[in-house]
Design a binder for these strands. Structure first.
Lengths: 295, 295
DNA sequence: GTTCCGCATGAATCGATAG
DNA sequence: ACTATCGATTCATGCGGAA
């Protein structure tokens, strides 16, 4: 993993796989060839959020700030690739701001296809009570593509039927997180299939996942299971996944676990270091598990 | 209940409560005074759907078709009232059509406030998948208001607390609970009572409800629980609720059950008759229950 | 080694207060 | 009048100490 500027310019065009790069994705991506990325999965800083690291983009300026970046995304994405955007509109003056709607319309004018909108139901959203609204328990996962036909591997995200299987899936994923991560290279779907492989159905466009909690230092804004789901659905092992707002590197962790290559870009040096540490921990966990299995 | 045109013109301005009226809501509402409706809850014909009765509005014409009607809705709605629109964008040529996004933007230009967007998660939608998408399991419930302050009765829709609290509180003895409760009366132990006393919490903006089939001819309408929830939240008993695309009359049934007055408008004579029959059945059920109680 | 419970902490939003 | 900051509100979850 390289974060130094010197290495970027000569390294990326030749081989930009499995790197975390510090910088503005709009600039960094200029060095990436056209039609070279299989999946872009990202959660950009929401308007006026994360101002400490991203400078707090004003809601009214959000589309203008984001559009040049999506132009680069469009260029580097393979024609059969997908762009999954995790975003939610802020409340401004007591009503939802329209920057997400405007962004979708603007991106369509640039050639993007608004193929689908998945729903992430967050079980543990921020609490609070106000006179005019309840807790915001969902976020958009907007699926853009460059063309009508794109790669989608639906069988890879099939889920067990019925509540009994759901509860077992939950238990498995929790215990597996620490103990069996090395085997999770192929993912929980395969583990599950050991005992319920005959009762699997296709999921819907509603995803139920809790936000992941805090290892003291930092909180991942979305759970690893979220990029994992879309990586299974839209990529194959060996494909390359880009997260241009990499943050703590959750997308790259998912790619690493699933045997996909990643490219993570973030403007914050601190975030880049955090992501590199997380990925190093993943590597150590793998080694530890392998050693454990060997003994 | 009146469906004849002759009765409409003289009757509505004087008393338009608990009626099902056949006609185009854009025309019928002209007879309704300004600022007279407490809540508008409706699920308009989606683009290209219900073509037999509504002539199959083309997606590209949807906003132009819908906007004049929302102007009337705006006029008849009380300043403190709410307009809840159940809608979902169709897939056209492999991507989501943008008429819902455009509708929200157009309505805001006319003075509507896009206060919130609730999510209806349809738990039992029809199974099925397509090469480029899974089954669509959610719909928007867009909450528009005329002004920043509006009527909202949040306590009416509180829900039982989650499993985590049940499991965590199950070991508290009855004496502990009583002691803590009594302390609340004397002003002590308020913190404890926050946990022990509370078995109801406020919901979020995600609604989990199964779809309902009223009968074989009119499939996949929304469940009565859906308007019921919003009627509880945004109206009080005696308030008047409008559904300008009344269909089989589910909104009116909810209003009737909750002691709210209703006004249902639909362009289809068949739907109007169906709704009137449903409401008559409700009335008969009530009478039957009362008689049973009397004996 | 389990289970249980206390506690801290969030992609939040509102209203009031201050400059 | 308009923006910036701050406290209050609220609940699902993980962590860690205790039983």
């Amino acid at each position: 993993m390289f974060t130094e500027t010197e290495q970027k310019k000569e390294f990326i065009p030749v081989d930009f796989r499995n790197k975390i790069i510090q910088g503005d994705c709009e600039d960094i991506l200029k060095a990436i060839p056209d039609n070279s990325i299989d999946l872009i999965f990202t959660s950009p800083p929401y308007a006026d959020q994360r101002s400490a690291t991203y400078g707090g983009i004003k809601p009214d300026k959000y589309v203008a700030w984001f559009m040049p970046k999506t132009d680069e995304f469009f260029r580097v994405l393979k024609p059969t690739g997908s762009f999954v955007l995790n975003i939610k509109e802020r409340v401004v003056d007591g009503e939802r701001h329209t920057y997400v709607l405007e962004l979708i319309l603007a991106m369509r004018k640039k050639g993007w296809r608004w193929t689908e909108e998945y729903m992430w139901h967050k079980k543990n959203s921020h609490p609070g009570k106000w006179p005019n609204r309840f807790r915001d328990n969902w976020e958009r996962l907007i699926h853009f593509t460059k063309q009508k036909n794109f790669n989608m591997y639906q069988d890879e995200v099939m889920v067990p039927v019925g509540d009994w299987a759901q509860s077992r899936l939950k238990n498995l994923s929790e215990t597996d997180k620490k103990r069996d991560n090395s085997r999770v290279g192929s993912g929980f779907g395969k583990n599950i299939s050991n005992w319920v492989d005959r009762d699997m159905v296709y999921p819907s466009n509603v995803l139920h996942m809790a936000t992941e909690c805090y290892n003291q230092q930092h909180s991942a804004v979305f759970p690893v299971a979220l990029p994992e789901w879309f990586l299974r659905l839209f990529t194959q092992p060996g494909d390359i996944v880009l997260d241009p707002f990499n943050g703590s590197g959750t997308t790259c962790v998912a790619a690493d676990r699933l045997g996909r290559d990643y490219l993570g870009i973030d403007i914050s040096q601190d975030y880049c270091e955090l992501a590199i540490n997380r990925l190093q921990n993943e590597l150590n966990t793998k080694k530890g598990n392998n050693k454990h299995e060997a003994t």
